[in-house]
Amino acid sequence: MTNPIAGWSHANQEHAKQIMARYPDVRSAVMPLLYIASLEHGHVTDDGMRQIAELTGLTPAQVRSVASFYTMYKRDGVGRYLVSVCTSISCFLRGADDVLTAVEEATGTVDGETSDDGMFTVEHVECIGACGGAPALQVNYEFVEGVTPDKAVALCRWLADGRPEVVRSDEMQALFGGRPSFERGPADPEGAIAAVPAFGPYGSAATGPERGTR
């Protein structure tokens, strides 16, 4: 049989195998695999879904049915930085709509779209669990809490100018954040290398300032 994920990086292939082995039923691996496929292709592509279907014994239609249920599996191209501005009730009460507008202006794109230069995708999202630090946003799912429209603009500029390979919550929080939901303890060395949650087993976390582990 041909290897359905032959195109994937060695590290991601290894992760995929480990993940599939971890569940009593291989179908459970669909969601983690969708993250890996997103890393490989930049977003969830038809090919990616076909590959996952083959790995898990599902039809591509079944994989797409699952993928499309969740908001974090992006099926259109995503910019280098996915800026997700929370506009749910607690952030709304604290001025989230203005933050969203500021981010749209600073990135030159609008809610749900990707900037022409491919740098930013902007989206409004429902509650991200940072209500104590409202208004809050995430860059590639790394939190920044207690932002203001001005700080959000500065954050976007910083991203556009510095183009960090890895985004880290602590760094952004220190530079552009305000009051967080809670004291966050020691700095976290890990950060995200793409618009995929930076969770080690799914292969998207990176440590230190060097390039990502892909």
């Binding site: 038809d46 039809t59 591509p60 239609a61 797409r64 049915s65 499309s68």
Partner: peptide, 22 residues
């Protein structure tokens, strides 16, 4: 036993469909 037609999307956007080109 040939699940080629499925729900896609969620909530009020749910629709039934096949996979592109399948």
């Amino acid at each position: 036993g040939d699940p080629l037609i499925e729900f896609v999307e969620r909530g009020n956007h749910v629709e039934v469909n096949t996979f592109p080109d399948e």
